[in-house]
Design a protein around this nucleic acid. Structure first.
Lengths: 254, 254
DNA sequence: GAACTCGTTCGGGACTGTAGAACGTTACTC
DNA sequence: GAGTAACGTTCTACAGTCCCGAACGAGTTC
């Protein structure tokens, strides 16, 4: 559910509200939807009709659900990202090599978006999904990006989203976050010590393009009991950094 | 680009036209977009503003592009499909086992949609992408679905889309197609003999749910010179059929 | 510095999306 | 099997809003 403060085109906002509701409800009928988005049945019906004609929604024996046309849109959108194009295979490589979960993140509207993910043989089962949008300050991936954004941009993002506590270890103090980001800039490595999920630690590195601006980040994540000591402090960071460099090089040659 | 014949909600149709154009153009500015969708700049601007606020569009130094929020939508939409949930790993399995390309298809609005795809070690490079929507009569995957749809449904689809020639081998005659589908029903196997792409042959099997209605299909595809003789006639069909059965069983136990 | 672009803002008028009531069906309940 | 409730859908009229053209400020290019 998107929170919209100032008004845009009403009909468009409503259409997307309906799409999102449809997704949340795992498909629904007109009346159920109407209750959920708090609009008259007829209005919802009208929207569903247009969405169905445009093939963004499918009607199956009386209930509506979002169609896979969104898959088409998102695939072409994602393929346009250099980060995904060259990073994808490296994420798989990293997951295989470490046996853990590896992921790719980029920033949109001040939040971290999981662009891709791959699971190694030992990978923890609980994790977020591709496409998920999370507060950017509570993951290694997010902090790797945040640290290398222009100062004004970073400030704007923190101003807008603030630093909500996602977990007991989440950094909620602006000063402490800046300190942390300073060391991220020095080492080109960011850590997440159970700042988003209990029992999950991760290591991430930023990915910079030819002009030294961040386009995303890459990480390895695993259960705390495996992510410690030498492995957590030096081994994994070196591996991640190496792969980040490979991606950076490949991006400049395309 | 979607062709819309009868009018729905104008603003919604236009919003999606803009999203699609944005995707086609790989990101664009207001003026360029306005020219492309043939609308006044101010109208396009108004839409982009709304879409940006709703986070479906991202503005980056003066140009707009579709955001990865579509990825979030499409991932949850896809995860709702039983076909994808249980079929995904089997497609990977099939691709690995045969060394070729394996794919999953479902039907929406009378067209075939590629839901997932995996490439084996020998896999042909040229292929369609996940999310692509193709005429349903010109692929093995599509014919496997078509053959097992209820008669009225199949007739409606063919009436609506007709049988355009996609390639020199495409079946364009209704009678011939029905004959073909009859043998598909008998064997539970559909073939594509370069009916969509030159040099590409494939074998597909339908996937039925507990009530014997088709929810999709699975295939193996490869270059004609490898897809022939015993392998094409019996070996691959048996493998595909076996895996289709595994998927069907798993679907009924969830 | 003129003459192009570009993105953006603004306001009034035409149109259209909205909402509520009403219809026909289906699915329950008693 | 009548009665009731919920469903999806259709219709109409009015209020509201989306749309467009014109105008503005900011960059570029010649």
């Amino acid at each position: 559910m998107t929170t919209r403060d100032s008004p845009g085109i009403q009909a468009v906002d409503r259409a997307f509200d309906i799409v999102e509701a449809l997704n949340e409800l795992d498909g629904a009928g007109v009346s159920e939807l109407a209750r959920h988005v708090e609009l008259p049945k007829s209005t919802v019906h009208n929207h569903l009709d247009t969405l169905e004609r445009a093939e963004y929604v499918v009607r199956e024996n009386g209930t509506y659900r979002t169609s896979l046309k969104f898959l088409q849109i998102s695939e072409t959108a994602r393929n346009q990202h250099a980060l995904y194009e060259v990073g994808r295979s490296e994420v798989e490589h990293l997951a295989e090599k470490t046996g853990e979960i590896s992921a790719l993140m980029t920033e949109e509207h001040g939040r971290g978006v999981f662009v891709y993910r791959s699971r190694g043989s030992e990978a923890a089962r609980i994790d977020t999904c591709i496409g998920d949008r999370v507060p950017i300050h509570c993951t290694a991936l997010g902090k790797a990006i945040l640290a290398f954004l222009p100062d004004d941009r970073r400030a704007a993002i923190i101003d807008q989203h603030e630093l909500p506590a996602v977990n007991h270890n989440t950094i909620t103090d602006r000063g402490r976050l800046e300190e942390d980001l300073e060391t991220v800039r020095e080492r080109k490595i960011a850590y997440d010590d159970e700042e988003r999920l209990n029992g999950l630690r991760s290591v991430a590195a930023p990915i910079l393009d030819g002009t030294d601006s961040v386009i995303g980040s890459i990480s390895v994540a695993g259960p705390t009991h495996r992510m410690k000591g030498e492995r957590f402090e030096t081994e994994l960071p070196e591996t991640v950094l190496g792969i980040a460099n490979v991606i950076e090089l490949n991006i400049q040659h395309t």
